[in-house]
Structure formats: structure tokens, C-alpha cells
């Protein structure tokens, strides 16, 4: 696969941006944690933000539309998070891989040809399920009662659909229309510039 420096930088800079926004969101989400703690659901407080967590891969894939972009972007984002001092250290590279794989799987099954909202919603759901399976094994969630897990999954899916399907598509399309993404696959045929 031929990666241009520009593409790599775009993914990396956006990964840092999503990292910053995610951090801001989790601070704001401390409130959820506190409210839910007395009923034992503190961990559920993290779930509404999972969609932002997946955004690095989802956005890069939606813009560039090349095989492997989602996975590579998530791994890149995870390496960056490791550098910024995440307490899981390099372990998040593993979860990055699962996230990228989860989102890209649906897109890949459609041969990177379908980019409508339904496909993105399916990808968001697939990504949520895959990451919960990762949690079942790695975080030991298979020791938790099934109804609680389903509740967590439901919140995670809603969050993923909001951020990685709706916001991702809306922002991506608007950026393309504004001409910011000229040169990327998303803009092909959109602003045909004869001089380009």
C-alpha cells in the first residue's frame, strides 16, 4: 500500500485531536461516573464516550476509503495515546487493533464501495460488539451479569452510532463540500476542478 506523508500526517493529527476531545469528554463524564457509582454502575459512565474513542479509525476510513485505513489509523491513534501517557501503556495498541478491525470489517465486506449511513451504522454496531468481546476476555467482563453487559453494549452502540455514523458522516461530507478534503477519495467527483 502506498501511503503519502500527507495521509499519514492527516491521520496522526486527527488522532491527536480526537484524543484531546476524548480526554475533555471523559473529564466532563466524571459526573456520570459519580452519579452511577452508588448503584454500582460507575463503569457505565465511560460508555457514552466510546464513540469518540472509535472516531480516529472511522473518520480516516470514511475520508480515505482505502483498505487497511481504519486499522492502521486506530493503531496509530493507540501509539499516540501511549506516547501521551495513557495508564494502559502499550496495551491499548491491542484494543486499537480490535476497534479498527471491528469498524472496517463491515466496510470491507461491502468491498469498500458502500459509504451510506446504513453501512456506517452497521460498522458502528459491529465495532461496539467486537470491543465488548475484547472486554469480555481482557477486562474480565464475562464475570459480569448478562443484563448489565447488554445495557453497557446498548449505550456503547448508541454512542458509536451517534459519533461514528452520524457525526462522522455529517462532518466528513461538510468538510469535503467545503473543499478541505480535496485530494482524498471522499471528494472524488464532488468538486471536480478541471485544473486539479
Amino acid at each position: 500500500m502506498n501511503w503519502k506523508l500527507k495521509d499519514v500526517l492527516m491521520i496522526a493529527v486527527c488522532a491527536v485531536l480526537f484524543g484531546v476531545i476524548f480526554l475533555g469528554a471523559t473529564y466532563a463524564g466524571g459526573m456520570f461516573y459519580g452519579v452511577l457509582a452508588p448503584v454500582g454502575m460507575a463503569s457505565l459512565g465511560y460508555e457514552p464516550f466510546y464513540g469518540i474513542y472509535f472516531l480516529g479509525g472511522a473518520f480516516a476510513l470514511y475520508v480515505m476509503r482505502k483498505p487497511g485505513t481504519g486499522i492502521i489509523a486506530e493503531i496509530l491513534a493507540a501509539i499516540i495515546e501511549t506516547l501521551l501517557g495513557n495508564f494502559f501503556g502499550p496495551i491499548i495498541i491491542l484494543s486499537g487493533l480490535v476497534q479498527g478491525l471491528g469498524f472496517e470489517l463491515v466496510i470491507a465486506l461491502k468491498k469498500y464501495k458502500k459509504w451510506d449511513i446504513v453501512t456506517l451504522i452497521e460498522a458502528s454496531i459491529c465495532c461496539s460488539i467486537m470491543t465488548l468481546i475484547y472486554n469480555l476476555i481482557v477486562s474480565g467482563y464475562n464475570k459480569i451479569a448478562v443484563p448489565v453487559l447488554l445495557l453497557m453494549l446498548a449505550v456503547r452502540i448508541v454512542s458509536a452510532i451517534v459519533f461514528d455514523a452520524f457525526i462522522n458522516k455529517a462532518v466528513g461530507d461538510r468538510l469535503a463540500k467545503a473543499g478541505v478534503l480535496n485530494g482524498y477519495e471522499i471528494s472524488r467527483g464532488l468538486n471536480d476542478d478541471p485544473e486539479d
Binding site: 503519502k4 506523508l5 500527507k6 500526517l9 492527516m10 496522526a12 493529527v13 486527527c14 491527536v16 485531536l17 476531545i21 475533555g24 469528554a25 466532563a28 469518540i52 457525526i167 455529517a170 462532518v171 461538510r174 468538510l175 467545503a178 478541505v180 478534503l181
Partner: peptide, 22 residues
């Protein structure tokens, strides 16, 4: 921080930065 408006503006800047950096 979470509003799509802010996200949009920040993404415009980020993509521009990445192009200039490259």
C-alpha cells in the same frame, strides 16, 4: 468541546496543519 461545530472547525484546522506539515 463535544459540539459538532467545534469539532468541524478543529478538523478544518487539523487537516490544514497536516497539509502544511507534509
Amino acid at each position: 468541546t463535544l459540539s459538532p461545530k467545534v469539532l468541524f472547525t478543529m478538523l478544518v484546522n487539523s487537516i490544514r496543519w497536516s497539509e502544511s506539515l507534509a
